[in-house]
Write a protein that binds this DNA or RNA. Structure first.
Lengths: 215, 215
DNA sequence: AACTTGCTGTGAATTTATTCACAGTGTGAC
DNA sequence: GTCACACTGTGAATAAATTCACAGCAAGTT
């Protein structure tokens, strides 16, 4: 097994990449760990550790060469280049995600959407064709889709996930607030808006009272 | 300082609550840690540890009393009951979040939205009045808003966040893919869709190849 | 009433993630 | 050249999160 890299590191590398792209656009050629750290909100040591995972090394005198570092991160995270993404569920959230994704020139583009509502199928929304759920197998194969965004109601999330897995999908970004049970070789990342909001509420309340009591 | 509870625990408690509500609706009165753990996708020991933070204790013979446990979690997470939320940014994402939030009978409801586009202000969307950004101070005060969802373009996120902080907001749910710099007493939770998707892509690719190489 | 069972609560061990701290080094100043 | 500097890469220390493992106990069973 390859030296396994933690999830958190993956996430931060993705963040560093975006920051670096900004620097590159501004014509910056070299950068130090503490500069990246400042923008990313982490410690310089953390940045260096994360970059270690890439196998890329900077120069003690100049720091990291922006372009080379970007290339390293790209190689590490993507390798194969742009990947097609499937979207299941075209409710409010699904449509918004579609709009959001099509807006920014991301390296991942949603090439096919699915919904059980016949009113929605056949149409093209934000440049993406919407198919019936029955057509899923065929479309996934044709487009070579290996990752999917799941934005369906909670009740059908497990079902949809199982179906996706059967059809060869190995990565799912799940917005339904349930834990999905999938085969071991499938990766699920959950984004739970309710939980996120509750966490904010908890801290917001706590901070609000803290602020007063400190005085 | 109170014995500080980790962010992760907060998140899981929120998840347990939703699961427990399901049990309660089904008329279940007592529940064991391993049952919750199974649904939540964590270990039983983890569940017990998390519940320790509440100060609530179950019975060795029957497990946890669903209703009492729910009450404990509620007391711990919310206490003050429903809280009003402000939403800044009514682009695709903002509108979708609004629809999403108004749909489910959450304990947090978006009572005011803000956008800089005069075309959008004054209207009522999904039962929520949309105000001009200039009116923010007044509206936040009137409604007693202490937490906000930030769904504006990346470029203006920092600005908007700073403004919110000035006006007494102590919790922000940030969808812009940048690290926000805010006063110490303000809590920020980031939801970065791009990073999330890249993480899925990374693992999806990895799993896909792993699956083959295991064979 | 004594015994069995399978749970909870929690100290201790372990694993994972982060930070410290410093040897080693390329660069620019003199 | 030689020196001083400010950085990187990384082993070791620390901190945080999770899991183990077991004492103690309420309820059912004989």
């Amino acid at each position: 097994m390859l030296p396994t890299t933690s999830d958190k590191t993956i996430g931060r590398l993705s963040l560093y990449r975006r920051l670096l792209q900004g620097f590159q656009a501004d014509g910056v050629r070299y950068i130090y760990s503490h500069q990246l750290a400042g923008l990313a909100g982490v410690t310089p040591a953390q940045v260096r550790r994360d970059i270690m995972a890439l196998g890329y090394a900077g120069s003690p005198a100049r720091g990291y060469h922006v372009e080379e570092l970007l290339e390293s991160i790209g190689h590490f995270l993507d390798d194969s280049g742009a990947q097609p993404v499937g979207l299941v569920g075209l409710g409010n959230l699904g449509r918004a995600l579609l709009a959001y994704m099509s807006g920014r020139g991301s390296r991942y583009s949603v090439v096919a959407a699915f919904d059980s509502d016949p009113m929605k199928t056949g149409r093209v929304i934000h440049g993406c064709r919407c198919h019936a759920v029955d057509a899923m197998k065929q479309v996934l194969e044709d487009e070579g889709i290996r990752m999917a965004i799941l934005a369906v109601p909670t009740e059908v999330a497990q079902d949809s996930a199982a179906r996706l897995c059967e059809m060869g999908v190995t990565g799912i970004l799940n917005f339904a607030p349930v834990r999905l049970w999938v085969p071991e070789h499938v990766y699920v990342e959950d984004i739970d808006l309710t939980t996120a909001l509750e966490r904010v509420a908890y801290h917001a309340r706590r901070r609000a009272t803290m602020k007063e009591s400190v005085k």
